[in-house]
Write a protein that binds this DNA or RNA. Structure first.
Length: 471
DNA sequence: ACCGGAATGG
DNA sequence: CCATTCCGGT
């Protein structure tokens, strides 16, 4: 049968980013993930749901960073079934699939809490547009921390390099890579770490990525080498971008673009660049329609390459755009390179007090008690280990390959489907910040010092401090 | 509810 | 590879 899944429909021509001076690697333009444009993956889907307000009654972030609760398992399964054209999908099966992620370290179960899982992004690397992504990725922010700052994120040159295959080297200025004397193939180039101060190895570990450092674009914490400065309006010529359909749950090709989402979260200049018209597109799942605005998913709005589902970060991949393999990846966690991004947990209290969760309590089982995890950020060492014995870093007993793979995860999507600022709830929001934040990741509980009311810069300071303490 | 093995399919 | 489906076991 041909269930008419939306996913089958509209597979838009590959989007592309034409921003001059900001070339993306070939793979970035690939519609889906590298390896043969796979189908949507469950965890991608989960993330998608999570970032959509419409589904908060069904699944939502809750608890620790990266932790989410499936409030309505059946519904989630149903949605997944629709997406995959598997009419007989049910939570049992879906959960089986989720369980497979344990080994891959993409997810793990939060024991003791029903229907609660947690993304493990500590090893996850945002591939596409790391810089911005990191800014948005609460996981990234948080987990680096939580998983023991020790668990360094991939800051190794290799890792980073793999992240920036051959990025922008826009006109002026330094290129991302040091084209060394010796010719460097796609593999030979060395990424200049200094390019990403916040990733920097020697550099100070910012508790937050640049884009979160300050409320306004005014003074970027640092300069962006290749002349690209996300804070500057010209950074992304959104105007020239071909638009894509809203990051809908369906066509995976439409994965929200990190970059864009990042923009949407950036202060005015950028957010305003984002074309309105967004989400909504869903066919109100189970009736919970997109309250936002029912604009059918007709209008495009992405201008970046769609999210490559599972890009492999293997540096080799890059040159050959096509067959990216997920083959052996670079050891991403070189023992020595540990430096974490030290990103603070700060999710910028987006949600803290907001109505992130709709009372769709279900089966009276799902506890909604953020407190349980709400200890300090630091506490979370448990995180992956919530029970996860073998969390001892990577060396997954199984296959190191798996491990690396999970890091590959790139995000892609995290913020993308955020409703355009314009469609966000009225400014009524208590905190201005809120608008800047991803609705997605709710920092369940912030240390007092990080309360949303705190000025951003203050927080930054604060975070820095914490960071120092931690170290 | 949750787990993970096994078989199977795309 | 990534699920999907089934299923026995906790």
């Amino acid at each position: 049968m041909d269930c008419n899944c939306v996913s089958d429909l509209l597979l838009p021509p590959v989007p592309a980013l034409w921003t001059p001076g900001f070339a993306f690697p070939d793979w970035a333009y690939k519609p889906e993930s590298s390896p043969g444009s796979r189908q949507i993956q469950l965890w991608h889907f989960i993330l998608e749901l999570l970032q959509k307000e419409e589904y908060q009654g069904v699944i939502a972030w809750q608890g620790d960073y990266g932790e989410f609760v499936i409030k309505d398992p059946d519904e989630v399964a149903r949605l997944w079934g629709i997406r995959k054209c598997k009419p007989h999908m049910n939570y049992d099966k879906l959960s089986r699939a989720l369980r497979y992620y344990y080994n891959k370290r993409i997810l793990h179960k939060t024991k003791g809490k029903r229907f609660t899982y947690k993304f493990n992004f500590s090893k996850v690397v945002l591939v596409n547009y790391p810089i911005l992504d990191m800014a948005n990725s609460p996981f990234f922010l948080a987990q680096n921390h939580f998983n023991g700052g020790s668990t360094a994120p991939d800051c190794s040159p290799e890792a980073i390099q793999s992240l920036f295959p051959r990025l922008p080297d826009s006109g002026r200025g330094a290129s991302l890579f040091d084209r060394g004397t010796t010719a460097a193939g796609p593999e030979g180039d060395k990424l200049r770490l200094d390019t990403f101060p916040f990733l920097g190895s020697g550099a100070p570990c910012y508790s937050k990525p640049p884009s979160l450092l300050g409320p306004y674009p005014r003074n970027p914490p640092f300069d962006y080498p290749w002349g690209f400065n996300p804070y500057l309006p010209g950074a992304f010529s959104l105007n020239n971008c071909p638009k894509l359909p809203p990051g809908s749950l369906y066509p995976s090709q439409f994965y929200p673009n990190p970059l864009q989402s990042s923009l949407s979260q950036l202060p005015h200049p950028f957010s305003s660049l984002i074309p309105p018209g967004d989400a909504g597109g869903e066919r109100g799942a189970a009736g919970q329609t997109a309250g936002t605005n029912g604009t059918a998913g007709g209008q495009p709005r992405l201008c970046l390459p769609s999210y490559p589902g599972s890009l492999s970060m293997g540096r080799t991949d890059i040159g050959n755009g096509a067959a990216l393999g997920e083959r052996e990846r670079v050891e991403v966690n070189p023992p020595g390179s540990g430096l974490g991004l030290g990103l603070g947990p700060v999710g910028l209290g987006a949600v803290t007090g907001t109505g992130q969760q709709s009372p769709t309590e279900r089966r009276g089982g799902v506890k909604q008690d953020p407190e349980s995890d709400s200890d300090l950020e630091i506490t979370d060492l448990s995180d992956c280990s919530s029970e996860n014995e073998n969390e001892h870093e990577f060396s997954i007993g199984k296959e190191s390959r798996l491990a690396s793979r999970s890091q590959v995860v790139l995000d892609g999507k995290k913020g993308g489907a955020l409703p355009p600022i314009s469609s966000l709830p009225p400014p009524a929001s208590p905190h201005p910040l809120k608008t800047l934040m991803p609705i997605t990741p709710p920092p369940p509980s912030l240390p007092p010092s990080l309360s949303p009311s705190m000025a951003l810069h203050e927080r930054h300071r604060e975070t820095e401090t914490l960071k120092m303490i931690h170290s």
